[in-house]
């Protein structure tokens, strides 16, 4: 099988639940995606849509209980990584699969110097001695464009700005030369100018090291700048997948269209902002039919009771409008492309 090596990561039918006092939350429902080697896949969605839970389950970061991965598989370069015991988990977590978080300040240990925190990774995962690790630390800090690495490595997290801490996180996640880097809203807390610097850094690192990146964000501007492929999530499901151009120029799911129209376009000709009315469904009792049914302006009778499958191939949308029997609709154009 040649296809095994085409993808750095392949997730199939992932489902995650949380048991709470209020009942069971079905946070992720049947999520599948593929990350092509050396590219960036953006997972887009709003708070509570399950994008963070999806990647946390790949990293083995879901607390169980209350969490539970009820089904699915995740292949890291062809190897199953879901449901591993901690010991086996630690052989790939942080090593072949790196992760950076939104809030770098709380993800770092405030009582350890930056240098020692990065060195720890090297000593544990790459069995380096302290001296070699320190040399490597300085190289990593230089790689992520932190000036005066020797001085900065001896400082503590509180002495760094938000943008600098995010660089430290990136340096740390790269310490073990991972194949896949998961970036969970890495620039959400940063100013646009610093955001541009961090995004550029990630892109340069990808070019230099052939890194495959999963980028989680809710900012379509960041998606447009960074992604090769995109998965749009809503109410625990992926509702549309495709190349970045498919998603922006040939959107096929009403939710994707709604998200796009909710952002100002920055064209000189003023375009009215459109609002997606209502709010996402309660995942304690996910709707029987399509998760977007209650807010969808194109909803049909079938959508209420029947959950749609994903129609299409490389570019796919979870929407009944693409069923052969659905009435003609403007969103259908894109998926009908014979090459899809």
């Amino acid at each position: 099988m040649t296809s095994v090596n085409q993808y750095a990561l392949e997730v199939n039918n992932l489902a995650v639940e949380f048991t709470t006092y209020g009942g069971t939350v079905k946070a992720v429902r049947d999520v599948s995606f593929k990350l092509r080697k050396g590219t960036t896949l953006a997972i887009v969605g709003e708070s509570g849509c399950g994008k963070s839970v999806t990647v946390q389950s790949l990293m083995g970061l879901i607390p169980m209980p209350p969490g539970k991965i009820t089904s699915g598989s995740a292949l890291l370069d062809g190897e199953e990584i879901l449901g591993l015991k901690t010991e086996r988990l630690n052989q790939y977590r942080g090593k072949r699969l790196g992760m950076i978080f939104q809030d770098a300040m709380s993800a770092l240990n405030p009582t350890m110097t930056i240098g020692n925190q990065i060195a720890e990774t090297l000593i544990v995962h790459r069995a380096m001695d302290k001296k070699t690790a320190w040399v490597e630390v300085l190289e990593l800090l230089a790689l992520t464009q932190i000036s005066e690495p020797a001085r900065r490595a001896r400082q503590y997290p509180f002495e760094f700005s938000g943008g600098m801490l995010q660089r430290v996180m990136i340096a740390m996640s790269l310490a073990c030369k991972p194949d896949v880097l998961i970036a969970d809203e890495p620039t959400t807390a940063l100013d646009v100018t610093i955001q541009a610097q961090i995004l550029n850094l990630l892109r340069n690192l990808q070019e230099k090291q052939g890194l495959s990146i999963i980028l989680i964000t809710h900012d379509l501007g960041v998606v447009a700048r960074m992604a090769h492929d995109v998965a749009v999530m809503y109410a625990g499901q992926i509702v549309e997948t495709g190349s970045v151009d498919d998603i922006f120029y040939r959107s096929s799911h009403p939710y994707t269209v709604g998200l796009k129209e909710a952002m100002p376009s920055n064209k000189t000709v003023e375009q009215e902002l459109r609002v997606i009315a209502g709010s996402p469904p309660d995942l304690f009792a996910p709707p029987e039919g399509c998760g977007f049914y209650a807010r969808c302006m194109y909803a049909m009778k079938v959508c209420e009771k029947n959950s749609p499958p994903i129609f299409g191939n490389h570019h796919g949308a979870r929407c009944w409008l693409h069923h052969a029997n659905a009435p003609a609709h403007i969103l259908q154009q894109s998926l009908k492309d014979p090459t899809n």
């Binding site: 100018t193 955001q195 541009a196 610097q197 550029n200 501007g221 998606v223 992604a227």
Partner: peptide, 19 residues
Amino acid sequence: KSNPEPDPEYERQRSDALI
């Protein structure tokens, strides 16, 4: 120039002028 625009075509042509 740093502000990301929801437009992949535009983003690909953008220069990397950074502060």
